[in-house]
């Protein structure tokens, strides 16, 4: 579960001494320092242990439990006795079932899942999840950047603006969903404002648009604040120098702002992507997953009451998808959240 792209590099850049194995360090000269590091290490272990143990209980245990569960068949009615019995070892058949959209057939084998059943929706849900993720994150990045640039300027009422953008962020997503559901109601204000008569949650395109707008409204402020924090790290004299050298506004944006804000921007995008991939609240409340708005999270929840074991397999697949996306981001796009969190001293690369 390490998020770090290059742990060794960073570690070395940060503190060359503890990088060596402890024994070797002792043989080397720095005995006093080594003892100090050792006693700090002991302290640190004691202080961090409760957090790690608690996280292990609330995350690692359920995950292992889910994996074990996913390798069993769902409980079913025993055809002879008519009672519920555990399904027994299933290997990876639950996973294969999801990936190839195969369901158990009455005669004991498997067949293609019936259209509309939970089992037939894996790939469409995956597509919907990525569709929402890409569109919302792109919109939020562009809008968030614009908001951040405005908020970074000096003008009267700036702190009022910064307070205002926190309002959508503070509202619970469940309330946001209801609010936009009301705005997009057939007789609602959106239709009246635009003079349209769209049944927003009634068909695929408008339903997705409604969810995307609600999500963008709710989470762009977070994006904007993260980008703003990145913008404020850029020293003003860099712009002065570029200006003296005759750089245009656009050149200053692409040559100075973008590269310098990139680390903060990538972390913000990483957070948002991982958050969007597990989107649940908005579609669950606004459409209930109807009209092509079923995300992977919704599909897992829909499956829970049909059978724990295949639900566990699906939740494991979801977790793996998110994990792989995070890995790609960190490895290839340089979104190093841990580096940022550890004080950024390891930016030596």
């Amino acid at each position: 579960m390490s998020i770090g792209a290059e742990p060794t590099t960073t570690h070395r850049a940060k503190s060359p001494k503890p990088e060596k194995p402890v024994k070797q360090g002792k043989e080397a000269s720095g005995v006093g320092q080594d003892n100090r590091a050792k006693s700090q290490g002991k302290w640190a272990t004691m202080l961090i242990a409760p957090t790690l143990i608690l996280l292990a209980i609330v995350i690692i245990y359920p995950v292992i439990n889910a994996i074990v569960m996913s390798l069993q068949h769902d409980q079913g009615l025993d055809p002879v006795t008519g009672t519920f019995v555990a399904g027994g070892f299933a290997g990876v058949s639950n996973y294969i079932g999801w990936l190839f959209q195969q369901c158990a057939s009455p005669n004991g084998g498997t067949e293609a899942c019936a259209p509309g059943s939970v089992g037939s929706q894996f790939w469409s849900a995956t597509y919907t999840t990525f569709f929402f993720t890409v569109i919302t994150v792109v919109l939020e990045t562009i809008l968030g950047f614009w908001m951040a640039i405005i908020m970074a300027r000096a003008f009267r009422g700036r702190s009022a603006l910064r307070a205002a953008v926190l309002v959508p962020w503070a509202i619970p997503t469940a309330v946001t969903a209801k609010l936009w559901f009301f705005i997009f109601a057939f007789e609602g204000i959106a239709n009246k404002l635009f003079g349209t008569a769209v049944l927003w949650t009634g068909s695929s395109g408008p339903a997705r648009a409604a969810i995307i707008i609600a999500d963008v409204w709710k989470t762009t402020p977070f994006m904007a604040l993260l980008i703003l924090a990145g913008l404020q790290m850029i020293p003003a004299d860099v712009y002065e120098a570029a200006k003296v050298d005759g750089a245009s506004t656009w050149q200053r944006f692409t040559q100075i702002t973008l590269p310098l804000v990139k680390p903060a921007l990538m972390v913000a995008i990483l957070f948002r992507v991982l958050d969007a991939l597990r989107m649940y609240d908005l579609p669950a409340i606004m459409t209930g997953g109807a009209n092509d708005t079923t995300t992977l999270s919704l599909l897992v929840v829909a499956q829970i009451r049909n059978g724990f074991n295949s639900a566990a397999a699906l939740s494991t697949i979801t977790f793996l998808i998110i994990f792989i996306v995070a890995f790609i981001f960190i490895r290839f796009l340089g979104a190093n959240a841990v580096d940022a969190a550890s004080g950024g001293k390891g930016k030596g690369k």
Binding site: V58, A66, V300, L314, F319
Partner: peptide, 11 residues
């Protein structure tokens, strides 16, 4: 960043 659904099912 762990997805909530991955906890809900086993829990």
């Amino acid at each position: 960043m762990f997805p909530g659904v991955a906890l809900v099912t086993p829990l």
